[in-house]
Each structure stands twice: as C-alpha cells, then as structure tokens.
Computed example of a mutant assay.
Amino acid sequence: MRYFMSEPTVHRRLAAIMFSDICGFSLIMGRDEAQGMRVLARYEACMNTAVEEFGGRIIKRLGDGMLVEFLSAVSAVECAMSIQRRIAEQNMAVAESDQFQVRIGVHLGDVVVSNGDILGDGVNVASRIEPLAPPGGICISQDVYNQVQNKIEMEVVALGPQQLKNIHRQVEIYRVIVAAANGAAEGTMAAPVKEPASKSKWIWVAIGAVVLCLAAAGVVAAKRGWEQKQAVETLQKADELLSMNQPSKARILLEKAVKQLPPTTPKWNDLQARLTTAKDMELKERLQRRFDAMAVTILAKNWEAAAQFADPDSKMRLGIKNISGRLAVAGFFADLLRVKKEHFRIREMKLSEDRKSATIIPELHLFNEWKPQNPMYWKFTNDEWYFVVE
C-alpha cells in the first residue's frame, strides 16, 4: 500500500473503487449499542486486513460504510470476495446476535484526487451499485467485468442495464456469486448399464402406472381443497392482524402462505394483494418510528446523532458536519418557538411505486393550529429509512 502517495494538488486518474457497508446497522445499534460496536469493530478489522492484503487504500469511513481505492480492478474484486468469505467464516464462529452481513459494490472509473480524497462520477457510481448487492453479496459494473473476466475464478449473474440515481446513463451491472468461487466443479460418475426389462415386466409397470394415476387424481382434488381452505383462513387471520395494526405479524403469516401454496390456489392473488398491503403498512410504521426518533434527537440538541439519520448519499455528498450544522439551525428555531415532541407530527405519508423512497408532509402546532411544513424525502436503503438532505 506504500505506493499510494498523498496528493497536494487536484488531478485525475483511473481507479477501481469499492464501496461497502453493513446491512441493517442502524437496527443493530438501535437494538443494542454494545452489540453494534462489536459488529463495527469486527467489520473494520476484516476490512483493514483484506484491503492491506490486496494493496488497496481506505479513503474514508462513513459510519458503517467504507470507500476504498485500488489500482487494479482484479485486486478490488478479489478483495471483495475475500471480505465476504471472511465474514461468512467468522459468523459461523460467533453467536447469532453478533453475526452481520455486508454489501459491496465495485466500479472502475475516472476519479478526481484532492488532498488524499477521491471524488467524481466514478465514486458516485460505486456508491449506487453497492445497494443493488444482496446481503453478503457483491455487484460490479460492466467496466469492472471487462477487466476481470477470465482472470478471476468466479461466476456472475447479469442484472442488465440499471438506471442509478443521479447518474445520467444506464450502467450494466453483474452480481458476483461468491460461493461459486470457493471450489472447482465436481466430476460426474458413469451410470451403471442395466439389462433390458422383459415384456411382462413392462405390462406390470403400465398397470401400476394407471393405478397410481387414479390415486393421484384423488390426492390432487383433496390437496386443492386443503390449499383453498388454507388460503381463506390465512386471509382472515391477516385481516384481523392488520385491523389491530400488527402489519409485521400479518406479513410473516402471508409470506409463509405465499411460499407454501402454489399460484394455482384459489385466492392466491388475494394473498399477494394483502401481502403488499401488509408490507406497505409495515414500511410506513417503521418510517413513523424513524421520524419520531429523529425529532426527539433534534429536540435534545444532539446534532451529530441526528445527522446519522441522513442517507449515505447525503453524508458522502455533504459530510456529517455540514448536515449537523443544518439540523442545528432547525433546532434553534424549534427551541425559539418552544416546540415540543407532541407539537410535531406527520400529516401525510406517501410511498413511491418501488417502495424504495417516501415523501412526508410534516406539520407543526403553532399558535393553536396545525400548519403543514415543507416536504421531507426519505430513502429506504440497507433495510432502514434515511432522510435525504438536499
């Protein structure tokens, strides 16, 4: 890593950029801060070791995320695969509560180098590729794939062209199958040669097949009736849970039914529709809790903690200090107007069609009346809601 030098002037270069962060880290910290710090320490130790081994340079740490630069796309992808394997191995040796997963995105692009930091379109693309990876997974751009194909033993799945936010062109994305690179393909064994059956044997086989078909028809009819009954009972239970404002329990119940019952089941479309309703209610419930928690943090004048509610893109673009300063200004006026927690609430909440973002219209109780405020935009990323700072 010594060949990287700190640049006193601004210039450009081609670099392989890796962006990573911990899945659902905000939930972990909200549930148990001590556990969250243990997870963060293991994550950073794993990242430091792997990046050092493959000749990379950690540019910056963004809470539970990291921006890393490599001189080689091959080194970047090998490092990403090594990180995912190490974390998977470590998870097997610790309690389930201390296990965690990471998403990684890798892109090869032009970057602007300034005072040891890197900026530009290449960094932006890498940061938006990372959320496309599944937990424990890796996504790479077409530019990276062109460099590493036939040089790394791996399998990939083409996700096709993706329209990334604030990127004016579509980017071809590939998902790396991490497990596929762990071992070689297994050999095949020759099947034993069988002697041909006699004519009488085939007659008995045919008779047996007819009997089985008749029995199977009865089984299918009974099974279809049971499936319909299961669907109707599940819908009734789900409606009851939704009416009691328990969308999480309803979602789990409906997901289990949709997974177990075939699409040909009567009422299956109703199960899917109700599942969408439950998911929407759950997302809105989580957004409401997130909004309330941020309001409490702002009113407590804990600006740095409040800034952690901002989405990763905003943190990278503006920085924690900038966001903290903006929130401090909002807190000053709230303090001036003697605003309390009960004076601030959500008037309207609307999810986007892809359920990855939402618009909130908050309202403030001033001078004995509720007054709508400017819209707030939120993004659902890494299994959590974050507000967007414009």
Rank of each mutant, 00 (worst) to 15 (best):
M1Y: 12
R2Q: 14
E7S: 10
V10D: 04
R13E: 14
F19C: 14
C23N: 14
G24D: 10
A34L: 14
A41G: 05
Y43H: 14
G56S: 04
I59T: 05
K60A: 05
I87T: 05
A93D: 13
V94S: 09
E96P: 01
Q99K: 11
F100D: 00
V106S: 06
V111F: 02
V113L: 06
G120Y: 09
G120Q: 07
D121C: 04
V123T: 03
R128A: 03
R128L: 03
P131Q: 04
G136K: 03
C139A: 07
I140M: 04
V144C: 00
N150T: 06
K151I: 06
I152F: 00
M154D: 00
A158D: 15
E172R: 10
A179N: 02
A181T: 03
N182Y: 12
G183I: 11
G187W: 12
T188N: 09
A191T: 14
K194L: 11
A197H: 02
S200M: 12
W202H: 12
V211F: 05
A217E: 13
A221L: 14
K223M: 15
W226L: 13
A231V: 05
D239T: 10
M244N: 13
S248P: 00
E255G: 03
L261F: 06
P262Y: 08
W268V: 03
Q272H: 03
R274H: 09
L283M: 07
K284I: 14
R289L: 11
R289E: 12
A293T: 09
W303E: 07
D311M: 06
N322E: 14
V329E: 12
F333L: 15
D335E: 13
V339A: 08
H343T: 05
H343I: 04
R347S: 13
K350V: 12
D354E: 06
A358V: 08
I361A: 03
H365D: 01
N368P: 00
N382E: 15
D383G: 01
W385D: 01
V388N: 00
